[in-house]
Design a protein around this nucleic acid. Structure first.
Lengths: 204, 204
DNA sequence: GAGAAAAGTTGAACCAATTCTAAAATTGAG
DNA sequence: CTCAATTTTAGAATTGGTTCAACTTTTCTC
């Protein structure tokens, strides 16, 4: 079992991701040539394509790590949310947004989003959609939690509200990464303003 | 002035768009090779690049025509909307969605969306963003109209509501074009369900 | 209407992602 | 330990979008 081959495989995976992360950040996605990634990772071009179906999948692996971290951070908020609906939403969304540029540049996000719509059935496309769903579910979980606590009306259509909030936030985030000069505080303020309407509708 | 050169130019534009529309539809965006578009339009490859910066811009021109038609159709609804908030929104959104696949296939939409996030500063990227804004404005105009008529509370933050509704619809539409098996009636029903919450919050 | 300038056209060459196939390395059975 | 089967690697060949320098066509001027 295991042994040399397994270790080499894991090692090459890591080297490719490390090389790609570095090159994507310094040269941009388009600027990072597969040849350069291969050279820096000390593998051949063919090997990269043996590990990932295409260039997009390499980016996908990086995005996936990032979003999973964000999901983890979000769990804390769902478990013990701030004591009013507006703050609870703002805190969770704040975590998503503030963490979003830790590892990925806006350009990397743009590429990732583009690939996920372009090739929805590729491994990356499916993974990205799954991550979006996980985020939607987390927001829904928060709403459900707030209903339990008695901060949100129990007769509210929780799943629909959760999806509405996620969709709006996601679209705002897409516009945010499309404009290099856009800033996080303004993004958060705009989303708060939009959510205020919903908060008024669902809060007790 | 004008004369031959102008006419030839307009003619070539039209031939390129016609050829591209046909080929995109039958072979898909990726499948429609520039060489084939050039051949069908009876121009050279170089000429295509003289008229459009890149392959995406050709698709962009087609998308632009489609969305402008939709915007036009929407004007009627804004001018004289149905007599309750839920129906008014549903009617306008219905027009957007029902017209959306007239000229563009889901695959063409996916590509168009992907390019617009990938290259937000290209001519197409900017045009696409402008179209999104125009749609948002139209929804906002409808809300404003409903406020005038007295169907929507006057103290509501109209612009924020309009953007919220557009963002949610747009995100739902993105997910819709990503899944080939997704159907329009289900899409509309899901959006209605989401909007119901907002309608409750803003209606009088 | 002849000739020069401007504008537009052409397609071969270029570049980078992806595919393909022969060669090399690892494993496991005997 | 040896060797056939299997997995993995290397890098040359392919592919298709894009660029560019030479060539045509149109327009303008006298």
């Amino acid at each position: 079992m295991s042994g040399l081959r397994e270790r080499q495989k894991a090692d090459r995976h890591r080297r490719i991701i490390d090389a790609a992360t570095a090159l994507f950040r310094e040269a941009g996605y388009e600027g990072a040539k597969i040849e350069a990634i291969a050279a820096q990772a000390e593998v051949s071009i063919g090997t990269i394509y043996n590990y990932y179906q295409n260039k997009g999948d390499i980016l996908g692996a990086i995005v996936s790590m990032e979003v999973n971290e964000v999901l983890n951070a979000g769990r804390g908020v769902v478990a013990s949310p701030p004591a009013n609906v507006g703050d609870a939403l703002d805190t969770l969304i704040g975590i998503y947004i503030e963490h979003s540029l830790n590892y990925l540049s806006k350009e990397m996000w743009r590429q990732a989003m583009a690939i996920s719509t372009q090739l929805p059935d590729s491994p990356f496309g499916q993974a990205y959609t799954a991550l979006d769903h996980a985020l939607t579910e987390q927001i829904r979980a928060l709403i459900a939690r707030l209903q339990e606590i008695g901060l949100v009306r129990p007769d509210i259509d929780g799943p629909a509200v959760g999806e509405l909030i996620f969709n709006n936030m996601n679209m705002m985030f897409i516009e945010f990464v499309k404009r290099d000069e856009a800033r996080i505080p303004e993004l958060r303020a705009a989303i708060r303003r939009q959510n205020r309407i919903l908060v008024a509708a669902i809060g007790l």
